[in-house]
Design a protein around this nucleic acid. Sequence first.
DNA 1: TTGTATGCGTTATCAT
DNA 2: ATGATAACGCATACAA
Lengths: 329, 329
Amino acid sequence: MAERKGVPTMKDVAREAGVALGTVSKVVNGIPVGEEYRKRVEEAIEKLDYRVSSYARGLRSSRTFTVAVMVPNLVSPFFSGLVNAINRELTARKYRMIFYATDYDPQQEQELVRMAEQQKVDGIICLSYNPDLKVSDGVTLISIDRYFGPRIPCVASDNYGGGRLAAEKLIENGCRNLAFLRVGSRLTNEPNKRKDGFVSACEALEVPYTLKIIDDGTPFTAFVDFLHEHFHEGRLEFDGIFCVTDSLAYLIRKELGRMGVKVPEDVQIVGYDGVKYFGDLDYTCSTIVQPVEEIARTCVEMALSGENSSMPSLVCLPVTYASGGTTRA
Amino acid sequence: MAERKGVPTMKDVAREAGVALGTVSKVVNGIPVGEEYRKRVEEAIEKLDYRVSSYARGLRSSRTFTVAVMVPNLVSPFFSGLVNAINRELTARKYRMIFYATDYDPQQEQELVRMAEQQKVDGIICLSYNPDLKVSDGVTLISIDRYFGPRIPCVASDNYGGGRLAAEKLIENGCRNLAFLRVGSRLTNEPNKRKDGFVSACEALEVPYTLKIIDDGTPFTAFVDFLHEHFHEGRLEFDGIFCVTDSLAYLIRKELGRMGVKVPEDVQIVGYDGVKYFGDLDYTCSTIVQPVEEIARTCVEMALSGENSSMPSLVCLPVTYASGGTTRA
DNA sequence: TTGTATGCGTTATCAT
DNA sequence: ATGATAACGCATACAA
């Protein structure tokens, strides 16, 4: 007996099992139903290899079992690691992920949020740099690393604590003259707190420090110039540098190599993020490791909780320090 | 005049514009309609900020504007770069991407393909190692790097040519005794051809070579042992090594460092993939660069073409060589 | 060329 | 507890 159509529908299952349509729906959705009926339905489902149509379900109910995830790109290892972890969490919960790369384009970000809103995904998890991202009430949006306001929950690593930790580790390793290098937007996002924590630790421990902060888009040569300004007679003034990301640490280290400054002998470097070569090999530098798995889990749990009230407006998750060859630890 | 519901529907637009429902549908889908009508509808859409429901559309028609993408993970830079490029291509065509990480789990891969099949996505693009992935006819599935049979199109870089190129470049740079190192499954997948191309070039140019191929799951120490077996009196027998991936090249280079062998002075290394530090900085080694953008574009075009007949069963895209510090070039 | 009506596969609200 | 039935929002065949 060949099926009429390609894909079996709930009606086919009901006919096959000799029960009513509604009963099948209940079985599928885990709503209590007579033991005998449930068995028959399950057998019919198995036999026909039936699967619910996510489109019909999404149309009828508001549960779509879909979460939209939005980050600038998948090329930066921190982003791709994050999305990887979020995907794991979603899959474990039988949710699927719609992925959007925004390429740092605020307009694109806004557009994607609007899409996600009206496409009725169950939640949106995004890492956006759009300073004034608009989001309607009623949609659950979880932000990573960027605080949009009390009504939009933000999940981040403990950037302040991470900044402190970086300074403390450098000092613990014998550094007596520190520098902090940062490239980024001037917007009040969480990663800015890395500087605050760093400064706080330096002052508490009475170690002198210098800050060099440049805006996004400024050419990297600004840092090169900075290093050379503090380079006299073959020696760098600083013996410890905290870079705002591992990526920056890589570039700085390369430049120091050109200058003949040895790492970690002459100067020690600590980065931030915890990026590993090829995703799972060595750390690229000594670094403050973001708890990627915990961030992902927290985001997913919040996005799926549905309670947009009673959610914390900011969750900071603890970081750890890992030695990666650019410190003497 | 407040809207009754949260999200405006096509009916609302029709009422607002004073036209019939079908007319709105036509405008939305780009079907010719009277100029005056179209204008009114577009204004109403703008005013109400209306968006079509992808669920209703997906239910009613078979076009879902959705493509499923499946790779083992997003942690390996090659995979994440690939997904990033695919996402760009899809976004440019107004398609959305459902992403699945399979974690190399054949059962998971099969399950996801089945889901995608019945969820009626417009196409599936996957990089799978499942030797006997089942896929029903009627679904468009494009495979990357793995040939499943004539009915499933496979897109890959020119692995054979890449293998040749690697050998040729090493020899061109003065190498006279080569080695090829590979870790991977024994399944007949495209990357196996890297070895064949390598061997072919070595034989054509009459340069001796040694192959060391270990199975997935074999500990890395197998390579370490191999290197030490060919290490006598502080010198390695080989002066050129072709590693099947950049990731392996990284590990080999590290081990050589431990042994006191200098790269590229004592031995030159060429990898495969074209991975860059932090996604967009330097190449991690001298390497055969996969044309990631072209692979992505080809996959997307084929997935969306809808013609599952008349598609080539294998498309090989040209690779290039890039120097990355592990060769003297 | 425009409007109308039907059904896509589900879920939820009813009676039963 | 189970079965019939009405939406959900849209596309399309068909009638005007």
